[in-house]
Amino acid sequence: MADEAYREWLAGLDAESRRRQQAFLDALAAKLGRPRVTEPPPHPFRGAPDFWKEYELSPEERIERFIANFRASGGHAFRVSGLAEAARFIADKALELGVPAVIRQDEPVLAGLGLESLLPGVEVRVWNEDPAEDWIARAAGAGMGVVLADFAVAHTASIVTLSARGKGRSVSLLPPALAAVIPAGRLFTRLGEVLSRFDETGREGLPAGVHFISGPSRSADIENDLTIGVHGPGIVYALIVDA
């Protein structure tokens, strides 16, 4: 079958690449004027400068900073007292925007929002709940995506989502509006606090996609005129949930 022929061809390409790799890297070492380095070299300058690693905001300050910076990037950020308030907020916005459908990640916390009962006239779908369906088309047809942030960063006002079977990348990308629920306990001060976790987890622990989202999609390519939502969501709600 053609598929098998393709696999064979690909395996050949990979074998070829491994052969080339050695010559390629040997040539680099030769230009650097030394033998190949095969042991991890000492890396004394790893990560941010020391003074920055000591920088930490209090939980209250983090929330304030996130909200201020997220708004400055053109997003909408609010603090809500609990999941019930978050659910009402999201439902109100979905109705206000008149979206025909909402798509959410398959997360227990998001199931707990009860969007289905709050939005009786709106189709609420859960990413990848039925593998037979075309979920990319579902996400493209939805007016709003709802995600639970895995992490968030106050200094850069970033929402972080990690891809998984029930957490498609399309949910935070294809619908014109995005709502992210951020448990306050997942909000950190610095980017490095989240990034260094990926070093600790290591390669095996990483998902295919790690996405930092810091506001609505934007472009200034037409005469410096800022336009939002050119490809990704133009409306982004970040809801920081206490407790």
Partner: peptide
Amino acid sequence: GQRLTVYMSGISGPRRPGDGDG
């Protein structure tokens, strides 16, 4: 002059088994 670009994506390999996109 942005604090961070709107999107910063770290991609590690193709979609994992079971993933619905990527």
